[in-house]
């Protein structure tokens, strides 16, 4: 069973990371509790990998304080040994095979489950005896996924773990993640821009954009927290007046307006009587709208496919 006591495992205070000409992390404040699956969402280059690097002491912040299990993770083998972070662009020794990488992982992660790793090698149809540098992008991702899951580290970071994986392999990953997490509760941070695919797996959502945290909320309280109202423009305008509008589209005399509000049963009935249609907003759409509202790129008219921008480039 999960959802029991959840003490704080990571705390981030005023962390900024400056590169020569850009701010990759902008005064980030976060607290992560143990035993949850976190979704770290955001566009490419939003700061997801930078944040995870800083949390695992693989990278360095310019200012601010990071604590993992109450200690600074930098150069602390005691803290690091309880963490696993395989980068999206993880490098392996040139002459290593996946089987050898797993053998190395078994030396460093106390909770390593070799039988579990072997099962996943079969499921992903990974050629474990082929050199890693000869693997395809998808097979390379599978190596990272297997190390991440089989390490059973108390905090495991997955950095866009599905790159190059086909739909079947991604489903295997999600299924194994849910199943293994249920049996061995721990903290998972899943960085992704394929939000629809992972939405239901998440307990908590962190949305980062241009190095700033836009959303840091329980996934369930986000779900259904916005709604799209569709109908004749005048009526839609009347119904949504005075509400926080995330997105507005018009087409001929019709309008489709997404509002940041959870409607009561009475309000839903009222919309029905006015002949307005209410459409649910997926987590992905909501994230896209919030990102755009924050950047000020949206609130324009007639951008039908704007939500594809966050994700569909892959």
């Amino acid at each position: 069973m999960t959802g029991t006591a959840t003490p704080e495992v990571i705390s981030v205070r005023n962390v900024s990371k400056k590169y020569k000409d850009s701010l990759a992390l902008d005064n980030v404040d976060l607290t992560l509790e143990g035993g949850k699956i976190y979704g770290l969402l955001g566009r490419n280059g939003a700061g997801k990998t930078t944040l995870m690097s800083v949390l695992t002491a693989q990278g360095f912040q310019t200012s601010g304080e990071v604590r993992v299990f109450g200690h600074r993770p930098y150069e602390s083998d005691r803290v690091l040994g309880r963490i696993c972070f395989i980068r999206e662009s993880q490098k392996y020794p040139d002459d290593f095979t996946p089987a050898q990488a797993f053998k190395a992982a078994s030396m460093f992660f106390a909770g390593w489950d070799q039988a579990f790793a072997d099962r996943m090698v079969e499921e992903f149809q990974l050629p474990a005896k082929r050199r890693i540098k000869k693997l395809s992008r998808g097979q390379l991702s599978a190596v990272g996924v297997i190390i991440g899951l089989a390490s059973r580290a108390e905090i495991t970071f997955f950095d866009e773990p599905y790159l190059g994986l086909d739909a079947v392999a991604r489903q295997i990953f999600y299924d194994r993640l849910v199943q293994d997490f249920a049996e061995h509760p721990r903290t998972i941070v899943l960085s992704s821009h394929l939000i629809d695919e992972v939405a239901n797996l998440l307990e908590h959502v962190i949305l980062i954009d241009k190095g700033r945290i836009l959303v840091d909320e329980d996934a369930e309280s986000i779900r259904g927290s916005a709604v799209t109202v569709v109908g004749p423009a005048a009526l839609v305008g009347e119904f949504t007046a005075g509400r926080s509008v995330l997105h507005r589209e018009t087409f001929a005399s019709l309008a489709s307006v997404t509002i940041d509000a959870r409607l009561s049963a009475r309000e839903r009935a009222e919309a029905g009587e006015l002949g307005l249609e209410l459409a649910p907003v997926t987590l992905q759409q909501l994230i896209v709208r919030k990102t755009m509202a924050a950047t000020g790129t949206d609130l324009s008219v007639g951008e039908r496919d704007s939500d594809a921008e966050l994700e569909a480039t892959k």
Binding site: D175, V178, A182
Partner: peptide, 18 residues
């Protein structure tokens, strides 16, 4: 069990437990 619900619906076990 909540874990069976989680696996079947592919949702977070904590959510199923809730």
């Amino acid at each position: 069990s909540t874990n069976e619900f989680a696996a079947f619906y592919r949702i977070n076990p904590a959510t199923a437990a809730k």
